[in-house]
């Protein structure tokens, strides 16, 4: 047994992880959540704004991180639309455009009163990494003269009077890396005092915690925080309770739980092999 485990091919571990992650997905396991104070801060940053506030939705993620970040992006969009805020979608990631369109589809399906140009606008993608942030924070039209359909911002009612993003009441950033939350904090939120909340991958969350609560009003770290956010949203808006599309992150907590427990088991088994090996003189 010891020799078998010591020389275990890593592909068996891959297979084990595959199986344990699949079971809860197929079984549809769900768990209750207890929203952390930081998640509640994010929720209130949006909830406490007067209805119809201007929110800049900077969605900087791509298909690779879609599994982890898309549920929280959808939750942000849904929450803002429930509050009747005006949404300005924008991305610094070339692959982010179609993901913004998926957010817009959510608005079209669930909020028929929302009108393009009046209540939400898609400013699309701009190249240049953090460059566009530095520009739009003082002059929006210098970097974004037209929306994604090529319509001039001067012809769109909700952008007609917008000179720069300092006129936004809140920036909501969903970030998978660079350019992302750090750049928004460095070049927009902090120097120009624009209230900002962020959602990020689990691995980059610890890196962003130092910005909370002074420079970021709140951070959603990974799918766990997204699930807590959805839970808070359902608490506040009970009409979402029976809507499965409003529970994408909650649905993903089942596989996460089982995968974490599997990791712990693997670490324990790995250490057992190590100590047995050491007692036998196989390892130093």
């Amino acid at each position: 047994m010891y020799t078998f485990l010591r020389d275990l091919d890593r592909r068996w571990i891959f297979l084990l992880m595959g199986i344990v992650a699949t079971v809860p997905i197929l079984a549809g396991w769900r768990f209750p959540e207890d929203p952390s104070p930081m998640v509640r801060d994010v929720f209130h940053a949006i909830e406490d704004l007067p209805d119809g506030s201007r929110i800049f939705m900077a969605y900087d993620y791509d298909p690779a991180s879609q599994g982890e970040l898309h549920p929280m992006a959808l939750a942000f969009t849904r929450h803002c639309a429930l509050k009747g805020h005006k949404l300005y979608f924008f991305t610094l990631w070339p692959q982010g455009g179609p993901l913004i369109q998926q957010n817009i589809r959510l608005i079209e399906r669930n909020f028929p009163d929302y009108e393009y140009g009046e209540d939400y606008v898609n400013l699309g993608y701009r190249s240049g990494q953090e460059g566009p942030i530095k520009v739009i924070v003082t002059d929006l039209r210098k970097s974004v003269a037209v929306d994604v359909n090529g319509t001039s911002l001067s012809e769109i009612p909700m952008t007609r009077d917008i000179r720069n993003i300092q006129q936004m009441d809140l920036i909501v950033n969903v970030s998978a890396g660079y350019p992302g939350t750090k750049e928004w904090v460095l070049y927009a939120s902090t120097p120009y005092n624009i209230e900002t909340v962020a959602g990020c991958t689990g691995v980059s969350a610890p890196y962003l915690y130092p910005y909370y609560p002074e420079q970021l009003a709140g951070i959603l770290g990974a799918i766990k925080a997204a699930a807590e956010y959805e839970y808070t949203l359902i608490e506040e808006y009970p009409q979402l309770k029976d809507d499965p599309t409003a529970q994408e992150a909650l649905r993903r907590m089942g596989p996460q739980l089982v995968a974490h427990v599997t990791l712990i088991v693997l670490i324990i088994v790995g250490n057992t092999i190590y100590f047995v090996g050491r007692s036998r003189g196989d390892v130093t």
Binding site: P50, D51, G52, S53, K86, D161, R163, Q166, Q167, D169
Partner: peptide
């Protein structure tokens, strides 16, 4: 000349033009 508008509840505006 109108330089901008704000939603109800808001009490500040930065006219950067």
């Amino acid at each position: 000349v109108k330089v901008g508008d704000q939603p109800p509840g808001a009490s500040t505006l930065a006219d950067s033009n």
